[in-house]
Nucleic acid binder design. Structure first.
Length: 276
DNA sequence: ATCCTATCCTGGCTGC
DNA sequence: TGCAGCCAGGATAGGA
């Protein structure tokens, strides 16, 4: 499932292929992909615009558009679970799961593929306004130990759903959350305001280290869905300590890894390393 | 304030 | 082999 490292990987690989390109035409194969907007309206908004910049915010791929030097809004792409965004030759056969296609200049085409149709590619006038509610970026300066300490104390929520809440912290998903909680010895149901300082420190360190290591390996391909824009699998799945390892021995203590549901999410942890 | 459930989707898996 | 039924999961909305 694309989380921060997978989205960051997509942005890095797509940037040289997209920035400076002009959108020549648009085709929408699944209307919900573009949100509530009418297809004709969407086309009017993007066709003729140029991609001025590509960046990541939380799990959004943000393509800033301009037209004659003036901003033309932005495309916010969210891959959700099965989305993939990639550029290829316009003549390459279109996969049957492609939901949106933007023709670029030079015979290239940007394709948004999404088997389960949860992903979105929205045109917005103001990207910042559209993403205003998101929490801080875990790899930014703002996300320090002190911030985390205070933020956790200010809430009384179970730690796992809290870390998954994009308004609290941007970019964490199910896989990396389980990995980080295991690394820092915190039970997924621990109440945020009752986690001791030492563990908060370890959690902060785990989040930064895990996300950085996963980005360095171009993300994780746990199932057949996630691929980089080059079509390659990620490399971080080999480093999972708990995710998808139910019944296998914990790398630290040998106890079998447990899987339970927390907030409707499959949650993997070690009962002896992550005490309540 | 926080939690819970349903919703959106469909390929792939399980069990018979 | 065939098929029904279930599962995964990010985000959000509405209700408790």
């Amino acid at each position: 499932m694309p989380e921060l490292p997978e989205v960051e990987t997509a942005v890095r690989l797509l940037r040289p292929q997209l920035v400076g390109r002009r959108i020549a035409s648009a085709r929408v194969f699944w209307p919900r992909t573009i949100g509530g907007q009418r297809t004709a309206e969407f086309e009017r908004a993007v066709v003729g615009a140029r991609v001025a910049g590509l960046r990541r915010r939380a799990k959004f791929i943000v393509a800033e558009l301009d037209r004659g030097g003036r901003s033309a809004g932005a495309l916010l792409v969210h891959l959700r679970m099965t989305g993939r965004l990639y550029v290829e030759a316009a003549r390459a056969p279109r996969d049957r799961f492609v939901k949106l296609e933007l023709a670029l200049d030079r015979g290239r085409v940007l394709r948004f593929l999404d088997v389960r149709k949860f992903g979105r590619c929205l045109h917005v006038a103001d990207a910042e306004a559209a993403m205003a509610e998101l929490g801080p970026e875990p790899l930014s300066e703002e996300f320090g130990v002190e911030w985390l300490q205070r933020a956790l104390r200010g809430r009384r929520r179970r730690i796992k759903p809290l870390l998954l809440d994009q308004q609290f912290l941007a970019g964490m998903g199910n896989i990396y959350t389980d990995e980080c909680l295991h690394q820092s010895g915190i039970h997924p149901l621990a109440r945020s305001d009752r986690i001791d300082g030492e563990r908060v420190k370890r959690l902060h360190k785990a989040i930064r280290a895990t996300l950085r290591a996963a980005i360095a390996r171009e993300g994780s391909s746990f199932d057949s869905f996630y691929r980089t824009p080059e079509g390659k699998a990620g490399g971080y799945q080999d480093r999972f300590r708990v995710y998808g390892r139910e019944g296998e021995p914990c790398g630290k203590c040998g106890e079998p890894i447990r899987r339970v549901l927390v907030g409707q999410r499959g949650t993997h942890f070690c009962r002896s390393c992550q005490k309540r």
